[in-house]
Write a protein that binds this DNA or RNA. Structure first.
Length: 538
DNA sequence: AAACCATTCAACCGCACCCAG
DNA sequence: TCTGGGTGCGGTTGAATGGTT
């Protein structure tokens, strides 16, 4: 809200504030009465300003005592920090600031306060609101949250920092990992984690298999409170929770940018196959490309993988930023051979890399990532939508089309997948929050496994004895934990070893919990157990 | 003009951290 | 080492506002 509008509100409140009726004389000063809530009035502001001028910032709880302001200390601090501070910069964000915010978010995730520290005169609240607004706009536009150039830039910075900071510290958390670089860079710690995960020595699965599993998936996606077996993190002691999204988020950035080497993603080892959960770099993988369903069905957030019933009322491009829906769409994480729920949604996913508009888009100002560019991008998509009607399934995608520079790939991938599945849209902590389903499939309304539309998909896939590709990292964990199979037990052991230092004992607890519930597919690991059964059957 | 809907943003809430006692 | 107060942070809410039907 601008300062003008704020003034309006304040003046309005000072005139007919409903809070006057709350027993606050003048609507402002309540003395020892009940603390007032709601919008601040100008007189309250004046009191607070006067107080801070006299006594300086801090000791906010004393404000009420000494000034008689009927506001709690927190409220005073917030008001001062967000509105009354003299060094505040009012007004809309400049393009430079917007660009900076995007950059910072790439690096930091939802660390609004830290971002605010990088933007003089701006508050965390302001940035947070801006970002959320931006997310929504891009959601509606079906655009990636992070422009590829910024992504690349952040990655480059990270690589630089990586070089600079290698072995610079010895975070004990990593002591159990072999051959691991210890980065203490504030950003992209997720890369570090990913690297840990990549170690074949740690996980009895092909290292590449995990390469593209965003760390957020490993640590966050399965962690929704609605997740049957209680997620790892949600059950973790708060102090053990990875604090701050950067550690998880950035892994997404790196791997999903396709910058990290993507090798043979699907080795024919007959064991559990894991593909990148976000399906992002799978598009770079020729094998996966040839597997037409894979590249599309793995793309999270898309209707193609959500419930098989894409809303026809939704514009194709305005793909909802629904979660990769591990909770809500079992099938979406399952076999790439799953029946495609919707041509339309699949088309949405596959059309762009091949279409003319994509190329033209790469020349658009969208790279700025700024809102005007977003609008431009959106408009471009709308304009080109008709001319970009998908005519060929992904299987017909010539491999060489995708075999371009990574940056171009980003462009096309982003265009193709749009925001919902943009891994960059999943800043770790916001993987869920940012993708709060806009439609009915709320995570909190997780239907039973059996009632999930996607469930049949996976089951059917299992019945065909096709190659099960469990892209879900949490499936990996859950199935490893619950599987009575020897190998899986080994997996569990390895996983526990791998994650234990990171997640603490709760991992073990969780896995035990999963173990106990494994016999009851509908409980504990729930759908994952079902998936496991399906896999066993297969 | 009214109703409805979408968007924005200030403010609140709960949690976690820090630090002094 | 424990405890409680102060503070900071991130997520969420709800009122205000603007746009559309």
């Amino acid at each position: 809200m601008t300062s003008e509008s704020e003034e309006k509100m304040i003046s309005k409140n000072s005139v007919d504030s409903p809070y006057v009726e709350e027993g606050n004389t003048g609507g402002n000063v309540g003395g020892n009465g009940p603390l007032k809530k709601g919008p601040w009035t100008s007189s309250e502001d004046a009191i607070l300003i006067e107080y801070v001028t006299k006594h300086g910032e801090g000791n906010w709880n004393a404000v009420q005592k000494h000034s008689g302001l009927a506001r709690c200390g927190k409220s005073c601090r917030l008001r001062w920090a967000n509105h009354l501070r003299p060094d505040l910069k009012k007004g809309a964000f400049t393009p430079e600031e917007e660009h900076r915010i995007i950059e910072l978010h790439v690096k930091m995730g939802n660390k609004w306060a830290r971002m605010a520290a990088e933007l003089p005169g701006r508050t965390d609240n302001e940035i947070k609101n801006y970002w959320n607004t931006r997310i929504k706009r891009r959601q509606r536009a079906g655009l990636p949250i992070y422009p590829p150039d910024i992504c690349m830039q952040a990655l480059n910075e990270n690589q630089h920092n990586e070089n600079m900071d290698n072995f610079s510290s010895g975070d004990i958390r990593h002591s159990d990992f072999l051959c691991m670089n210890v980065f203490e860079t504030p950003q992209f710690n997720g890369i570090e984690l990913n690297r840990q995960l990549y170690s074949p020595a740690l996980l009895d699965i092909p290292a590449n298999s995990l390469l593209d599993i965003p760390t957020s998936s490993l640590l966050v996606e399965g962690l929704d409170s609605s997740y049957p077996s209680k997620s790892l993190l949600s059950s973790m002691h708060p102090s053990k929770r990875p604090r701050g999204p950067e550690s998880i988020f950035s892994g997404i950035t790196a791997s999903s940018c396709g910058v990290l080497p993507v090798g043979n993603q699907y080795p024919n080892d007959g064991s559990m196959r894991i593909v990148q959960s976000f399906g992002f770099s799978s598009a770079y993988d020729h094998d996966s490309i040839s597997n037409h369903a894979l590249s599309s069905s793995l793309i999270p957030g898309s209707h193609a993988i959500t419930n098989g019933n894409p809303s026809s009322s939704e514009p194709t491009w305005a793909m909802k930023l629904e979660l990769p829906s591990l909770q809500t769409q079992i099938g979406s994480w399952g076999s790439p051979y799953s029946p495609l729920p919707s041509l339309e949604s699949v088309d949405t996913l596959i059309q762009s890399p091949l279409t003319e508009h994509t190329q033209s888009c790469s020349l658009s100002p969208r790279n700025s990532g700024l809102l005007d560019a977003v609008l431009y991008e959106s408009q471009t998509k709308k304009n080109s939508k008709d001319s970009c009607q998908p005519t060929s399934p992904a299987s017909t995608v010539p491999v060489d089309v995708l075999d371009t520079s990574s940056h171009e790939l980003h462009e096309t991938e982003w265009e193709a997948y749009g925001d919902p599945i943009s891994p960059f849209g999943h800043s770790s902590s916001s993987v869920f929050s940012e993708y709060t389903p806009m439609s009915g499939n709320s995570l909190d309304e997780l239907p039973s496994v059996e009632t999930m539309p996607g469930f049949k998909v996976k089951e059917a896939a299992a019945d065909t004895k096709t190659q099960m590709i469990f892209s879900r990292p949490d499936f990996l964990l859950a199935s490893s934990c619950s599987c009575p199979n020897k190998d899986a037990t080994k997996d569990y052991s390895l996983l526990k070893d791998a994650f234990g230092p990171l997640l603490g004992d709760d991992l073990g607890k969780d896995c035990k919990q999963i173990d106990t519930s494994a016999s009851s597919p509908a409980q504990g690991c729930g759908h994952d157990s079902r998936a496991w059964n399906a896999m066993s059957t297969a």
